[in-house]
Each structure stands twice: as C-alpha cells, then as structure tokens.
Design a protein around this nucleic acid. Structure first.
Lengths: 280, 280
DNA sequence: CGGTGCTCATTGGCTAGACAATACAGCCAG
DNA sequence: CTGGCTGTATTGTCTAGCCAATGAGCACCG
C-alpha cells in the first residue's frame, strides 16, 4: 500500500501538510506556506502545489482566503439536540458532561424568513401522507449565531390542520408550534428522526455560507399524533463543521426482553420511494 | 447574485452538467461527456473541463473510473438504527413506511477484525471515565455487505470490567455484548448518541473504500448502567452515501410539561475538551 | 488626524502541451 | 472457441507561463 516512491507529487505534498496539521504543528488558524513557497520547496510548479492544497481544502482541513493565503480551518461545534422539543433539560445525569458549554447560546435571532403555502415536495408529501394536490404550510427560517448563518429549518404542516392558527403567520410563536398543535387537537407525541449525510447543494452553500470541504447533515423530523397521524415534517440542514447531534436513550420497559447484538443492527436497504435525492 | 456573464467558465460548465444530473437528464450511472468532448463543446482547454468535472466530483455527484470515463454517482442508503440494540423491531407503527426494504439485509459477514488491549484515545477515555493510564479492550470490526465495506465499528470496554469475559476474545458473541455486560452485573440501560459529520481521513478512505465527495457520519455511543457508570463506548464511522440514521422518539411522561419551541432547541457551544478533532 | 489612492503579495482562472497509466475491444494464433 | 497480445480512448499527473482579482499595508494629501 505504502508505495511511497510512486505516489504522485501533489499527494506527497498534501500528506506532509496534513501531518503537520493533525499533529498540531500547524495550529488551527495558522497560515500555510504560500503556493509559491511550497512549489519552490518541493521543486514543482505552482499548479502542482495548488493541487496539493486543493486536496486539503476538499478534506475540510484548510480554507483559503484570497489573497491573504491558506489557513488551517478551525471548527467549533454546537450541540444540536432534537429531543429538546420535549425535554429542554436532559433527563440523563450523564448528559452533563456533554453540556459544559461556554453558554454563548442566548443570542439566536432565529430569523423566520417566511411562511408559504406550497404543494410540498415529494419527500415531504410522502411523510405527511398528503396527495400530490394537497397543499401544506411551510415555515422557513435560517438561524443565525453571532450574525453567522447556522442552520436552516423548514417546517411543513398540512394546510387542513393548521388553517387559521398562528402557525400560518410569519411571526414568532412564543408558546411554540407544538403547543399550537396541541390546542388544535393534534398533539405531537411521537417523532421519527432521519439523518442523512451528504455534500451541500450550491443553494445550501449560498444560504449557509459554506466553504469547500464542509458536508451537511440533513435532519428530517416527522411528528405524529397519538393515533399515528403525521402532523408536521421538519427538514433541518446542519453544516457539519458547526454541529454535533445528540440523543439520549433509555432501555424500554421489558416486554419480551430480546437483546440484540450490536448497535446499528441489521442494515435494511431503504425503499426507493423514500430514498430521496437518489443520485445527488 | 446571478452574475451570469462573469462566472468562471469551469463553473458554468459545472452548472450545466449539474442541472442535467439533478433533472435526471443524466441518470444515475450514466456516462458524462469525455473531458475532450466537453472542452471542444465549450471552447476551453481540457484543464478547464477537468476543473468543472472536479467540482462535481467533490460535490459527490460524479465518480470517475479511469480510463473509462466519468459517471453519475448512484447512491442507495441503508437504514442504520442505533436503537435496534434494544428494540430489534421498531415500536412506532409509523416506522413501517421507512422499513419497506427490499430486505436484502441478511448477508452481513460482520467481520471482526480483532480485539486489542489499548490505552484508549482521549475521546474514549473521557467518555469511559478512565484515567490516562488505564487500559481498555477494543473490539474492532469492519462490516461488509455484498463484499463491500459498509461501516467500521470500534467498541471500547473498561478492561477492569470485561476481563475474562467473552468480550475479550475475537469470536462472535452470539448472545450479544449487551447480554455479557448484564451477566457481569453492568447492564447497559441508558445511552447517549453523538453524531458528527465531516470529511473522512485518508485512513478512513482506505478502510472503507470511499471515493471523493463522500462525507462520513461519526456515531459515538456511550452506554451507562443504571447508576450512571459508563460501560462501553462505541465509535461507528458511517459513509454518507450508504446510510440513513433513524431514531424514533416518544414524548416522555409528563412531569412538568414544559413545551419548547422548535426542534434543535438552543444550540450550546461544545466544551472544548469534548470537541474532538478540533482542527481536522 | 483622517481619508484616499497606490503598490504588492497572493490566490483564482485559464491556455497549451507532454507523457503516464489503464480498461476494453478487437485481432490473431493455437 | 480460447488465450494472449496489441492498439486505442480516456483519465491522471505535471510543466511553463500568462493575466485578473483583491485585501492589506503604506505613502501621500487635504
């Protein structure tokens, strides 16, 4: 495997730089050698040095700031906890160690970009059990932290359900959308979370101000009433360099006590009709 | 925004191809025009056409197979369900629609690569509450499906806990590791799942046979006993193009009934000591 | 003291061309 | 019909060099 001698030059250069980065010889935020300096040092042209740096950029290790230079990316992730819709405070005491945050939280202008009436995209219609001609209300927002876009959050509700309720108006809902659903007689008591990982679309790159080498997690939440009726479908797009997704679980009350082997269990191939963005 | 006229040539070419892919004019598996054909068509050099294709490769839309050509990537994801360690069958009936799989499951050679005694990496030691000199047992495996590497799975256990148990031997554990822990008087009844998204390391690229433009999800599972003692820490690396992570949740029994606003809740900045791979 | 414009180092974009590596098809000999 | 060889199309790697765009510092001027 380690063919060393025959590895392409740009790989060798990239490897050397990567080692310096992972070993912290080059710290987060530090500047890399300029393309010309790299090229000189290794006796190659600037194009080859550029190719080496390109590798690191696509690995998400390096950002380039023209024309200042290339720099080691610094990431700090914030905790994203889907369960907080029901449990503002974690239930497990163990959770504490993950929450020792520098509580910079607070400021969260949670800018609701708008409310629209739409015929929902397929992936949403299927999850909400809507026919292709039924409309849905979508509340789109982009959340910011310190003025930086942080994630996007599109919540779809069946139009027939939320008609006339505060959900239809682009104002903040102080008591929360869940409370509104409860008052409408459609309390959300169960939810299914799907998390998918991929590179962002150009649109997402633009809306979230992503740089190269940053993947996103797509978190799809479908909420159900007690009798299994879907009442909302939320699609969150979370930049990978800004989030850690956190769940806490407890072993369910013993019914039949069937212990399985390992987490992850048997993989099931996803039904094509639900495997969205099949080729992207 | 639509600067049109001044967008770089390689971007224009990439945009055109991307449109063809997302609109399914170019289906999954279809071959793209050759670099030379693209260059001729747009009146640019091969280098520029190459750059355009490079964009799509890093977006995960295209794979290249030398010297046959470039092709539209096809993805099909399998369901990965951390909760299956306790619930082989989903509890929510709603889950059914996500599980209509072509049940290709079965074959899962679950190849245990080995069992080692190690001083665990920092990220694991912290989660297992081990001092830096204490050792842990790690069971490393790479799971395959249809001969293709599918994900990696490294489970760490405190050495003092599992000494002498079947966990220390590189054979399959028919009853499951959880059962062994229970017999050792350390039943895992709670767990915390962390999911982080990033580009793979070169090592992961190699072990999982990843191609460019495929991010990974890192799933860290920490299991606790009834009295809050950590008994295992599992690190799963899941290629983004092969997995959908699925959770099901129910609203907890009402204690104080505090409804929050939106899923995701307030972001908390992650404590530096737990924000692993800070600069990578 | 403050603003205004210049210079410059550095990255971005692109051309032109050379040679290497390799899967695949097609041909030829047995 | 089979096995091996060869040619070819296509992508991978690299050189050499050009001009454009731009943030930052600096000099100059009001």
């Amino acid at each position: 495997m380690a063919r060393g001698a025959t590895a392409p030059l740009y790989q060798q250069i990239a490897d050397e730089l990567r080692t310096q980065i992972t070993s912290r010889a080059l710290r987060a935020g530090a500047q890399l050698p300029t393309e010309l300096a790299l090229a000189d040092k290794h006796g190659v042209t600037r194009a080859t040095a550029r190719q080496a740096i390109g590798v690191l950029i696509n690995e998400g290790l390096v950002v380039s700031s023209r024309p200042r230079g290339h720099f080691v990316r610094q990431v700090d992730r914030m905790i994203y906890r889907p369960q907080s819709e029901w449990r503002p405070q974690p239930a497990s005491p163990e959770m504490d160690r993950f929450m020792e945050e520098q509580t910079s939280l607070g400021r969260e202008p949670s800018q609701v970009i708008g409310v629209e009436l739409v015929t929902p995209p397929d992936e949403v219609a299927r999850r909400l059990d809507l026919d292709s001609d039924q409309t849905a209300v979508v509340r789109r927002r982009v959340r910011f932290i310190d003025g930086m876009p942080f994630n996007t959050n599109d919540s779809y509700y069946p139009m027939t359900l939320v008609e006339g309720s505060p959900i239809m108006y682009p104002a903040d809902i102080p008591q929360g959308a869940n409370q509104v659903l409860t008052e409408l007689g459609a309390e959300q008591v169960r939810a299914i979370d799907e998390i998918e990982v991929r590179m962002p679309t150009p649109d997402e790159v633009h809306r979230l101000d992503l740089s190269a080498g940053v993947p996103v997690a797509v978190h799809r939440l479908t909420g159900y009433t007690h009798d299994g009726r879907p009442v909302r479908c939320t699609i969150n797009v979370l930049p990978g360099d800004r989030h850690v997704i956190l769940f806490e679980r407890a072993k369910p009350a013993p019914e039949h006590e069937t212990d399985s082997t390992t987490p992850g269990g048997e993989p099931h191939r996803v039904d094509g009709s639900l495997a969205d963005r099949g080729t992207q």
